[in-house]
């Protein structure tokens, strides 16, 4: 009787840990990018992302590396937009005002939307701020960048984006 109870108890405990661990399943390489239009994002998304190379970047106004990454993304946007690169910066700010203030300081010509309910970033399970997902022309996630490092990340972005743009839609 006692051993049965012990077994049941430990099984229950193990199950609770498994449930906790499985709650962290986010977007992974080779996953398809979910339909962003169905995520209740504030702001205007591009009409179609079909056949485009897409950089989805989760950021916040209080995050210092995010501010560093904005001029780099702006440069990438200007250099590669005609070849099929679409940058979508998803703000996770709770207040719209915080995002607007940030954008005044760091102007962006690329698409900026706000995930006010923090639902999309929860689905993606971004491990740090910023976290970006680079999606190939096939609509699948090809590279994930957790964090922004001024020395490495811009070079990686350029190399990866150039390689993905060369692929046929």
């Amino acid at each position: 009787m006692n051993t049965l109870l012990l077994k049941k108890g430990s099984a229950l405990l193990a199950l609770s840990f498994i449930t906790l661990a499985s709650a962290h399943a986010g977007w992974k390489v080779s996953d398809a990018l979910p339909d962003l239009g169905a995520q209740n994002l504030e702001g205007k998304l591009p009409d179609s992302l079909k056949g485009k190379v897409v950089l989805v970047d989760f950021w916040a106004s209080w995050c210092v590396p995010c501010a560093e990454s904005f001029p780099v993304m702006e440069k990438l946007h200007q250099s590669y937009k005609d070849q099929g690169l679409v940058i979508i910066a998803v703000s996770t700010d709770e207040k719209s005002n915080d995002m607007q203030k940030f954008l005044k300081k760091h102007p962006a010509a690329f698409v900026v939307v706000r995930d006010a309910a923090q639902k999309l970033v929860g689905l993606a399970d971004a491990s740090t701020m910023p976290t970006s997902f680079l999606i190939g022309r096939d609509g699948k996630i090809r590279h994930i960048h957790a964090g922004y490092r001024a020395k490495e990340t811009p070079k990686q972005y350029t190399a990866e984006i150039e390689a993905l743009l060369k692929e046929k839609p």
Partner: peptide, 11 residues
Amino acid sequence: VKPWERGTLTD
């Protein structure tokens, strides 16, 4: 606390 929920902590 998820990474995107740290706005208050960074205030």
